[in-house]
Design a protein around this nucleic acid. Sequence first.
DNA 1: TTAGCTTCCGACCGATCGGTTGCTATATTC
DNA 2: GAATATAGCAACCGATCGGTCGGAAGCTAA
Lengths: 204, 204
Amino acid sequence: MSPRNSAAEARRTRERIVERGIALASSDGLEGLTIGRLAADLGMSKAGVLGHFGTKETLQLATLDGAAAAFSRLVWEPAADREPGLPRLRAVCDAWIAYLDTARDVFPGGCFFTTASVEFDARGGPVRESVARMYRAWRRRLAAEVRTAVAAGDLPAGSDPEQTVFELIGLFMALNQEIQLFAAPDAVDRARRALDRLLGPHRA
Amino acid sequence: MSPRNSAAEARRTRERIVERGIALASSDGLEGLTIGRLAADLGMSKAGVLGHFGTKETLQLATLDGAAAAFSRLVWEPAADREPGLPRLRAVCDAWIAYLDTARDVFPGGCFFTTASVEFDARGGPVRESVARMYRAWRRRLAAEVRTAVAAGDLPAGSDPEQTVFELIGLFMALNQEIQLFAAPDAVDRARRALDRLLGPHRA
DNA sequence: TTAGCTTCCGACCGATCGGTTGCTATATTC
DNA sequence: GAATATAGCAACCGATCGGTCGGAAGCTAA
């Protein structure tokens, strides 16, 4: 079903487009992601790129979904087999920090979702809604782990899960700035110390 | 020295351009700030707008400076006559929260500097450097107040000022997201509680 | 073998981008 | 009052934006 490529290869092509789109958008934002540049980077024509998505907005949504899948693979899945509650929460937070610190190959421009959130938080449209939906889902999962940890007595009984999650998100955004804008070598140390203040000393 | 306007009015025109630029850039970013749109908004020609700055980059830097001046007026100056240390630090933080929550007329798109930081943190150039310089200056001032508060015994002796500032910045970014992306009605309450956790209970 | 489907390309569209140029109109300086 | 300086405009520049269209190339099903 194709000219230069078979139907199966077409899927691969689409994946290549999304993968490259993630890298570009993590640096220049989802709006700064242009079809022409994406095509040039991949050695394709603009029509060839756009043919897989139809419109730029659909391409943005696909890129966002691709980034979320990569994030899930890096942060959520490795912690899935940890004991629910504080152990799993810590594992997720450690992986989140590692995602910000060492996932430069997939996300060279820093946190894809911080960029997308700030870029679209003052606009309407499906991209904004999709970003908000993702953050809400992640916050819900974090809050659930906090609740489990409180029930298990691993976090103080008075802890407000939503409050803890609010502060965690702020921690990750501050770390992202520390790494990307300031290239601070002690960024991860700071983040770990803030984490200890929130969840109690590490490896307690 | 001018055609339709005198030299004095030209300064006013420049201020109008910057003021409108701040509003536009707080929503769409400094890159999304386009000369054509700015001109249309102000009922001017593109050449008339650009004539005051020469290049878009200079316009971006002027807009950034204008935003910093407005921020200073809203956040730093009102706290300047407070007692150095914890009282002044608290006043600045409260004003910072108010800036994020209620300064919609000047900054309709939320925190101008979070937007600029995330937009330029993966690029080079003078705009990025200017953003970094501003944040560094603000962080230095915050850290100085923390140090004074520690010396006065208003904060625990073991407090690390840079660490406290790191967490404060995260708090403000999380609040910005809570307001802009989620329009959460309890956003300010959350921020205040996080602040209490950092600096001790309010009005102690 | 052939007909149809699909991927992808090359060429093109109108709109907009940042920026330049020549000019007009006015304020200021002499 | 003449000369000068300048704010702002209209028109235009090449480049790029998102997007469309027709056809070439090749896989697949009949």
